[in-house]
Amino acid sequence: MNINSIMKKVEELRTISIDDNLGKGLRVIEDNDLLSLPVLEGKKFIGVLSRQYVYELYFKEDGGDKEKFLQRKVEEFMRTKVPSVNNSNMLIDEAAAMFFANNKLRFIPVVNGEEELIGIITKKAILERFKFIYGMDEPRLVIYIYDFKGKLAKITDIIAKAGGNIRNIVQADTEVLGLQEITLRVKANDIQKVIKSLNNHGFEVREFSDN
């Protein structure tokens, strides 16, 4: 799945011009409950104005004349070295890797061939998509088994016959006498029916809640 499916288009965004003053930029940020804001020159993406950075700089300069401070140009405070992508067909996991590589990123700008902003990818959108893909909102079942060969196929068959749909499955070696840990995310109208069916076939199941 590519980032185009989760991209917030520029028409939906709040942006600020490089020619605007800091006061206007902060008002847009605060009025819309944002942490940062894309800075544009015309339609071209130039950088990012961060509320936290502005506040830190203001107090670092010992406060001073607030009104004078707010009249300074946005370009004095924006970050320009911001990773961006110019391919809306980039895979979501590739975009996720960019966030992991730079934990300070609030969003990833998406630009066209002329460096014009066409949208952004937010960290929240990435996390929500991964939660959906991996069924993170579904019950988590853990089964410990020996003699792994053939058992996984049996487990999936039991779950299907009990009305369950496996959204995600992970197998890990516990490194204890060949004991294997099977973790499943299962969607079902009656998860207890699924667990009971597994128990009846000799599998001890532990159910965990992420809430």
Rank of each mutant, 00 (worst) to 15 (best):
residue 133 I to S: 04
residue 205 V to R: 04
residue 161 K to M: 05
residue 53 Y to W: 06
residue 34 L to T: 09
residue 56 E to Y: 11
residue 25 G to I: 12
residue 103 N to S: 12
residue 139 P to S: 12
residue 117 L to S: 08
residue 31 D to A: 15
residue 135 G to V: 09
residue 144 Y to P: 03
residue 184 L to R: 02
residue 114 E to L: 02
residue 31 D to P: 02
residue 191 I to T: 04
residue 3 I to H: 12
residue 93 D to V: 10
residue 149 K to I: 13
residue 6 I to D: 06
residue 178 G to L: 06
residue 34 L to D: 09
residue 92 I to K: 08
residue 70 L to I: 03
residue 65 D to N: 15
residue 203 F to Y: 15
residue 155 I to Q: 04
residue 150 G to Y: 10
residue 119 G to E: 01
residue 160 A to C: 00
residue 67 E to S: 13
residue 207 E to R: 14
residue 118 I to H: 00
residue 54 V to H: 08
residue 56 E to Q: 15
residue 200 N to M: 10
residue 124 K to E: 13
residue 173 D to I: 01
residue 184 L to E: 03
residue 51 R to T: 02
residue 138 E to Y: 15
residue 76 E to I: 01
residue 113 G to E: 11
residue 127 L to F: 14
residue 34 L to N: 10
residue 103 N to G: 00
residue 209 S to G: 06
residue 192 Q to F: 15
residue 99 F to M: 09
residue 148 F to W: 13
residue 107 F to A: 04
residue 208 F to P: 06
residue 201 H to F: 13
residue 184 L to F: 05
residue 38 P to W: 06
residue 33 D to T: 09
residue 132 F to V: 09
residue 125 A to W: 06
residue 72 R to I: 03
residue 22 L to W: 12
residue 82 V to N: 02
residue 210 D to R: 12
residue 21 N to G: 05
residue 156 T to R: 07
residue 206 R to F: 06
residue 26 L to Q: 05
residue 43 K to P: 01
residue 54 V to F: 12
residue 70 L to F: 13
residue 209 S to M: 01
residue 169 I to W: 01
residue 22 L to M: 10
residue 35 L to V: 14
residue 79 R to Q: 08
residue 134 Y to A: 11
residue 55 Y to N: 07
residue 144 Y to D: 05
residue 159 I to C: 07
residue 106 R to W: 08
residue 63 G to P: 06
residue 180 Q to L: 04
residue 169 I to D: 00
residue 88 S to E: 15
residue 65 D to I: 01
residue 11 E to N: 14
residue 87 N to F: 11
residue 136 M to V: 12
residue 3 I to V: 15
residue 120 I to T: 11
residue 30 E to P: 00
residue 110 V to H: 10
residue 150 G to Q: 08
residue 128 E to F: 06
residue 139 P to D: 13
residue 199 N to T: 10
residue 96 A to F: 13
residue 141 L to W: 08
